[in-house]
Design a protein around this nucleic acid. Structure first.
Lengths: 353, 353
DNA sequence: AGATGAATTTAAAGCGCTTACATTTTTACC
DNA sequence: GGTAAAAATGTAAGCGCTTTAAATTCATCT
């Protein structure tokens, strides 16, 4: 009976982790826990003596603050999430590289989720990130489910759309206007005299950038009374291999086009390479344009004519935008980045019939 | 005086976030908080009635559990970190793509940090991840500071080294044996009859994979009594542009080599393209081999002879390894993945002198 | 020197969740 | 029907940190 009398104080014993905690630091430094916290988070508010004592104790114990406890107490996690289609696409990988770098500099850490162009996955990952208490979210494009937007609104979570920028969008965005870029690109091609135009588009399902690119080209063509013949507008994703297949498909429909507009550089590179192995000389027999300006584009022979999207810069701007917002600084609703036409060697005048 | 009597119960009022919390769910469902937690985390331990009541309330309130609270209480975060050199290198991006996918399936979320081959940055990011309470860590290679290993040991943090695998390493690893792969690759080249060998290596500083590749080639050469002439062993990183520069540098040293071994495919692609623009015919005048088998390699003409490293698969294996470890399942200390020689068109016999 | 106010520091109350233990309900068995 | 064992649920104590209010120290001014 009496045996548990002296155990009474530790009735509930949870497996307190053996790791060092803030209280240990406080004890070693001979100060209170509050002072330790303040010494680290608001150094200017404590005396130099206290600060150095705390830092010494921190170093001595090799203490790493526990973000869970911190997040719980401060209601902020210093974590930012990014939902991108896939890291397998170097454009997004490059952008994330810049984002990650900027975030770290600002004291944030990056959570990455890939939607694989599936709105359900995007929603799941968003939920998963909100659970982890992200302070903000970066989303590629705005093709997401109603539920996702509702969730963001409910949590009042700061976010920014990146890569694609749609004028008039209600969402804060940093990116290029894909529609206008493809209008310009198409007009450039038409100005060279081309009238028989084919296009290798990207799948437009759940991909507003792809859709904007396609629409930009089609509208620009329509404005000049041109339409792409059946079978010469094909949809692929973004690999070189798919570009090759697409080009073969297009060239099997007669009469062949004099130019192929590709929704991105990987498709364009594939189109150029496949043309060459088919004995079609670029640009004499066929012109090709891409979009993005990936590294290999400049090294092809002839080098690819394309539009440059500064992905790294885009990543920086996106991160900066979100960081500013998290700091409560005023930010522009939309930051537009221009895609620059890079004229190289894959576009020439159409061959005389 | 008496005015604060009735305020006494709420002496300390913290800004309780307005967001929905577990207690709200419990109230709506008419059950205790413990039951809500159990219904979600150990569904088999509660009655069907309770479970459905809880799920209904969760859905109705659109409640998202707060991972900070959860991490604090359970001492696990369901978060895994990965430290890689850079996302700008598609090899790592592809691997992370696979890792991310596998982790999500297992209920974990991925934190990414880029070291940019800087051990200090790697340490910072590791610390940052430990703060966020990662349950496990993935590291590329094992070139890290003493402090990083100490930190991991102190936290008893499960981790796995990926990409490079060094036989005899004390660290659990999943990857390819770069040294042996380059021994094989080099022997393959020598077996074609080449004796004048050049190499475009990667910077070996803080990069054990690069170092193993270089050493593998040098050892294989030495074993056959061959050495690379001064000026024909150059160090670059991994871009096509650098490969081009490197090739020019090498060819300016006479006599020119009959084969260039490249530490990775991007350098090799650059070497092939530069050769062609210099009027050097591959493989008649010069053979080139790469390593990795990136997508573009197969599409070059001639297509690149290289060794395939299955990055996506490697990512899957790495994630699986760590997940198994986190679950307490027994795991092999090392999982070796073979690099497969892919003979294509850039290697031929040396031209008769 | 004493009083006043500013600058620091301490004490302790949560942040939202899980879980050990206590209590209640259900099931199984004689 | 009554009991014992098992299953389900409730209770409340923390998890490690931040932050408010109170207490202390320090500097300044009559």
């Amino acid at each position: 009976m009496g045996e548990n009398t002296d155990l009474r104080t530790k009735r509930r014993t949870r497996q307190g982790s053996k790791s060092v905690k803030l209280a240990d630091v406080a004890r070693l430094a001979g100060v209170s826990t509050g002072s330790v916290s303040r010494a680290l988070n608001e150094p200017h508010k404590v005396s130099a003596k206290l600060r150095s004592a705390v830092l010494k104790a921190v170093a001595e114990l090799d203490w790493v603050p526990h973000a869970g406890g911190r997040a719980l107490a401060s209601l902020r996690s210093r974590t930012v999430g990014a939902i991108i289609p896939t890291l397998a696409n170097p454009n997004f990988a490059n952008e994330m590289n810049a984002v990650q770098r900027r975030l770290i500099e600002a004291g944030y850490i990056l959570l990455i989720g890939c939607s694989e162009y599936d709105p359900d996955k995007a929603l799941m990952q968003t939920r998963s990130m909100i659970e982890r208490g992200v302070d903000g979210l970066i989303l590629v494009g705005e093709n997401y489910s109603e539920g996702l937007w509702r969730l963001l609104a409910k949590q009042a979570l700061p976010y920014v759309i990146t890569y694609g920028l749609r004028p008039g969008s209600p969402h804060p965005s940093v990116g290029v206007d894909n529609y206008q870029a493809f209008v310009r690109l198409t007009n450039f091609v038409l100005d060279q005299g081309h009238r028989r135009v084919a296009m290798i588009a990207q799948r437009t399902e759940n991909n507003d950038r792809a859709e904007a690119r396609l629409r930009g080209t089609l509208d620009a063509l329509t404005a000049r009374g041109i339409r792409i013949p059946d079978g010469q507008l094909v949809e692929k994703e973004w690999s070189v291999a798919e570009g090759r297949v697409a080009l073969r498909e297009i060239m099997s429909v007669l009469p062949p086009p004099t130019v192929v507009i590709c929704a991105n550089d990987f498709l364009a590179v594939g189109a150029v390479l496949e043309s060459q192995s088919l004995g079609i000389e670029v640009p004499r027999d066929l012109s090709v344009v891409g979009f993005d300006d990936v590294e290999i584009a400049a090294h092809l022979s002839p080098p690819l004519t394309t539009m440059r999207v500064p992905m790294y810069r885009l990543g920086e701007l996106t991160a900066d935008h979100l960081i500013a917002k998290l700091r409560g600084a005023p930010v522009a609703h939309a930051v537009e980045v221009d895609a620059e036409l890079i004229v190289r060697g894959t576009v020439g005048p159409p061959r005389a019939p």
